[in-house]
Design a protein around this nucleic acid. Structure first.
Length: 651
DNA sequence: ACTCCATTAGAA
DNA sequence: TCTAATGGAGTA
């Protein structure tokens, strides 16, 4: 190359798109004079790196370099569109540090693939819309601090709140009000919800408050073209508000005033690609870095959200007991066995008789919702007498009833279980430990022959149901709202959710129950919820009293006692034994960190080690792990170790 | 991943 | 002594 360097700021600091942890830093390149105007900070470029052309982003243009040797020139400026915003670049660095990953990995999540035609088409600058006037507080007046929260937003301040949403009051309407309040202060807003159905609902609410040109919807189902078009309008500041699902968490909203996440306990908020960041954590980082307001809302509350409250960083927004009582349905718990065998009709329907009676009565008043565990939780079988799991005689795998087969068979080896006897107590009959949605729908059809039964779940999720007597069987998260609220909800096999071995089982159960119960009419309007589980349990009590904070407080204390996130930070290292050993040998952990394992994982010759550090040493721990990963990749270690920080499922 | 370079083993 | 092969370091 013989071209002369640019007259001003001839050095471009470039982040190269290579997946290797030890290359996770900027490299300097010379800007040729003819590219001087194109190679703006944030631009996509191609550079020669280790002999080949790789993509990268210009982080900055500077006058000089610290590099000793000769600088290579930028090979090409792909586009002068500054796709990497400086605040997003800083965020990517923070997220990479937090999750022991690389900036390049984060940017892959944050910046959608370019679509050249889209970049050109919108050259005609759309005018930036004028801020809307401040909204009324809407349903926020139901919460003691709600009105203050909205006016603070509208006045340009940045409150941070963990919000327990009331049942029966559309939370999407409240989120829409918060968005408009942020816009009214001449700032931007970003709301992330778990799935497309929530996006649609929020969209429907926002549409009533804001012209559609003033916000965009970013969701996974968009094609590359439309996705880039909308994303670009946000980056260019033509649109100030974004609503969307997980990938929207990095949306380059300009002058960010509010970030919000709905139902942060939903596992859809955990990004499945490296470095596996979580929406709530990323948004909290954004709020911190941009000085934006943060709203973490849900019917339930996670231990992580509770931690934000207890650390004093965010405040708790919760309705008073009186207001909760006004909106919530009546909830009561019925233990499965105690209620089951007493009533012939109930036995025929294989329903606890409380459920059967409550359903029959509620059907006079409107639709009745049945929440049944997802079919993914294989319907397993248990001894009818002692309830121990029914296992295969041959391989000791769990027995299951699969659809289309009358006989139980082993979920592992497939052998049909004939002449089974319980290994614990000798009983010769088992019962379905968890009945799948399909089977429940069939049985309800027989028990209530004149009533229509509809199912929602899997790939057939109902949008909503009409306000007339009918039975709606849904898996958790797929419950369609009913026009005037459900007359009742039956939470079947609720104990099955609690029996799961995971750390979050209790929190998760409460989250799912509240999600269904929130769709039921208030007690004043006759709304009723029956949860089939031991009434004495803490989770069941939280539902009965509609006090999710109690569960979150307990979960947080429990995690503190165990040294688990969010009180401590844990990195999970997974790989082959030699690979994990090698990483552990190389890593220079802070003194406060502690290594557990490695222990073999199920199958695959994989092992897992946990590295734990108190929050005060967490950043040091994750940085050390990244450095050690880098050292391994620099030494061409062939076997990869996956590092996940604060994974959602810690058994 | 890929290139470059140094060290080293192998053959004249 | 020269050359091909192998390993390690660095990537601007």
């Amino acid at each position: 190359m013989t071209s002369t360097p640019a007259a001003a700021a001839p050095v471009a600091r470039v982040l190269v798109e290579v997946p290797l942890p030890h290359l996770d830093r900027p490299f300097d390149y010379l800007v040729p004079a003819e590219l001087a105007d194109l190679a703006v900070p944030g631009a996509r470029v191609k550079v020669r790196f280790a002999g080949r052309l790789v993509g990268g982003f210009v982080l900055d243009r500077v006058d000089r370099t610290d590099h000793e040797g000769r600088l290579a020139p930028l090979a090409k400026v792909v586009s002068a569109e500054p796709v990497l915003d400086p605040p997003v670049a800083r965020l990517a660095r923070a997220v990479a540090d937090r999750y022991a990953g690389t900036v390049a990995d984060v940017l892959r999540l944050a910046i959608p693939p370019r679509h050249a035609a889209v970049e050109k088409e919108a050259r005609v600058a759309a005018p930036v819309p004028a801020p809307p006037s401040p909204p009324g507080a809407g349903s926020w007046s139901q919460y003691p601090d709600g009105v203050t929260l909205i006016s603070a937003l509208a006045e340009g301040r940045s409150p941070r709140a963990v919000w327990t949403a009331l049942p029966g009051v559309d939370p999407m309407a409240a989120l829409a009000v918060a968005v408009v309040a942020a816009l009214a202060s001449d700032r931007g807003a970003l709301v992330v919800v778990p799935d497309a159905r929530d996006v649609d609902r929020l969209d429907g609410q926002l549409r009533t408050l804001l012209p559609v040109q003033q916000y965009v919807v970013l969701e996974a189902s968009l094609g590359p073209r439309e996705r880039y078009r909308r994303w670009l309008s946000v980056r260019r500041g033509q649109v100030r508000a974004v609503i969307g699902t997980r990938a929207a968490m990095f949306a380059p909203v300009q002058r960010l005033g509010l970030v919000a996440v709905w139902d942060d306990g939903d596992d859809l908020h955990a990004e499945p690609h490296a470095p596996y960041p979580h929406v709530r954590e990323v948004l909290a980082l954004r709020a911190h870095e941009s000085g934006a307001a943060l709203l973490v809302g849900g019917y339930a509350r996670t231990a992580e959200a509770q931690q934000l409250v207890e650390s004093g960083w965010a405040r708790s927004v919760t309705a008073s007991r009186d207001v909760v009582r006004h909106w919530a349905p009546r909830v009561h718990a019925a233990d499965d066995d105690a209620a089951r065998a007493t009533d012939a009709a109930a036995r025929a329907a294989r329903l606890p008789s409380v459920v059967w009676h409550a359903t029959r009565q509620a059907l006079d008043r409107g639709p009745v919702l049945f929440q049944v565990p997802r079919s993914g939780y294989l319907p397993r079988l248990a001894c009818v007498r002692c309830r121990s799991a029914a296992r295969c005689d041959e391989c000791h795998g769990p027995l299951a009833l699969t659809s289309g087969h009358a006989l139980a068979s082993c979920a592992w080896c497939g052998r049909v279980a004939g002449g089974w006897r319980c290994a614990e107590c000798g009983a010769d009959r088992f019962r379905a430990q968890v009945v799948g949605a399909g089977r429940t729908a069939e049985e309800l059809g027989r028990a209530f022959p004149s009533v229509p039964v509809r199912s929602s779940g899997g790939d057939a999720v109902l949008e909503s149901v009409a306000d007339r007597p009918q039975l709606v069987v849904a898996t958790p998260g797929a419950e369609p709202p009913a026009a005037g609220g459900y007359a009742a909800a039956m939470l079947l096999d609720a104990w099955a959710l609690l029996d799961r071995p995971e750390l979050r089982a209790e929190e998760e159960a409460v989250r799912r129950w509240l999600g269904a119960a929130a769709l039921v009419r208030s007690a004043e309007r006759g709304g009723e919820v029956v949860v089939v589980a031991d009434p004495r349990g803490r989770a069941v009590q939280a539902l009965v009293r509609w006090s999710p904070e109690a569960v979150a407080e307990h979960a947080l204390r429990e995690r503190a006692g165990l040294g688990f996130p969010p009180v401590a930070r844990i990195a999970e290292l997974t790989g082959t034994q030699p690979a994990v050993d090698d990483l552990l040998r190389r890593v220079h952990l802070p003194a406060a960190a502690e290594v557990l394992g490695p222990v073999p994982q199920g199958g695959d010759h994989q092992v897992r080690a946990l590295v734990r550090a108190p929050r005060s040493a967490a950043l040091e721990m994750t940085r050390a792990l990244r450095v050690a990963q880098g050292e391994r990749s620099a030494h061409k270690a062939s076997e990869h170790v996956t590092v996940r920080v604060d994974p959602a499922a810690l058994a």
